[in-house]
Design a protein around this nucleic acid. Sequence first.
DNA 1: ATGCATTAGCGAACAGTGTGCGCAATCCCC
DNA 2: GGGGATTGCGCACACTGTTCGCTAATGCAT
Lengths: 240, 240
Amino acid sequence: MAEKSTPIPSVWARQQRAADQPSLSRSAIVREAIVLLDADGIEALSMRKLGARLNAGATSLYRHVATKDELMELAVDQVVAEIVVPPAGGPDWRAAVTAAAASFRATALRHPWLASVLGQAGLAYLGPNLMAFSERLAALFTAAGFDQPSAAIDTVLCYVIGMTTTEAAWLTAVARSGETEAAFIARLMPAARQAAAGHDHLVDAYAEGAPDPAGSRDGKFAYGLEVILDGLALRLPDRS
Amino acid sequence: MAEKSTPIPSVWARQQRAADQPSLSRSAIVREAIVLLDADGIEALSMRKLGARLNAGATSLYRHVATKDELMELAVDQVVAEIVVPPAGGPDWRAAVTAAAASFRATALRHPWLASVLGQAGLAYLGPNLMAFSERLAALFTAAGFDQPSAAIDTVLCYVIGMTTTEAAWLTAVARSGETEAAFIARLMPAARQAAAGHDHLVDAYAEGAPDPAGSRDGKFAYGLEVILDGLALRLPDRS
DNA sequence: ATGCATTAGCGAACAGTGTGCGCAATCCCC
DNA sequence: GGGGATTGCGCACACTGTTCGCTAATGCAT
């Protein structure tokens, strides 16, 4: 019992290391963090779980990543690379912006933690993929004829981030319930109806059930985007 | 799996006990939680600190609030009551919506945690003040002539939430730095410039310094809102 | 091949966190 | 006064992010 503190190193107990995997690296850590984030949500990511998933101790990660916040920043930048923005200069800038927004939305729904983290990060993240994303958007809007495109970009981006944040949160809640979206809505309706009691316009809004929740989400996103594109088009010089 | 058909319980369905005389009461807890959230941010709110602030043990709070998430929901609903939405039926619906958006933004900047929590909550929060807020918005847009106002409302709301979330996050970072906004920008510029290197449109965007950061934030918010209102106006019937 | 300097990995530990449980005290009503 | 219901709270549990030394392995120069 004397060797309670440090076990005597034995030749037989010696482990040969690192033959199995390309060991620990920043990119492997980020990759696995994204897997864990996608699977179990943002609050389920812990350094210990992530380390265990990589056959490593929790504190080993700190040799490659300064802090958990930095890890999140790296994960965001990695995932932002999935967003595809059409090249600038095409004949139809509205179609290009619509495609970029759709790609953003698809990416944000594939990684439901993205939009909320991105919204709260604001302009503090400067990762290469995020910069490249911004650059392509700026090129797109500049080529479309906006002489001061950053305000237009921010308008579209804030709308898209706000919409996908709430949509991802909703889908996460649905997924956690283990039900279909329609069943989840049905189970939520009594509480919603009771809360809406006495508010005439709200009961009207709740009255018509949505037969196709996913489709109506698509439609709502497209509607708001069209509204914004119409408003932006009015600010373009000439046309016609 | 057993609660497949059980309606989702809501905080608001449970009745609130009277006898709010003792120092510990639901409303006192929520009030103090808001103070703490405003002062130190969302991640600084802990049940222990909140209990200490109320001269009570941490676990005592659980007699009045089921969980910390429920407490956040109550805090959100409390703060939403500060948002002023003009009555419906006025002659100028755009001015009314602009005023409501400005009130939302002011409230969200007064309580920098509001927008992000609200965005991630999505439609799950059913507090009375949030319902009243939605009702007033619905009345406003219905009176303006939108026959299906919920899509229009969501467009405006997602934009406002997205914009104020990033703006609040930015201001929180500035406040934490202890510097003025201009000084913070100046200190951030080298990193931003380096990250933007090679991206022509971005260096252009960074080139013009903003002499009045607060004013330019106001302007950006107003610009995006005007864009959306223009786009919505196109969808109104008649207009002469 | 050998010695050395650097570093990757990790166990223990610290200061927190949310919250369930059971016990004591207090209150209200009969 | 008796008794049941309610409130406050200390303890404990299972976590969290992160720091600190220590060991073992690796790369490099000789």
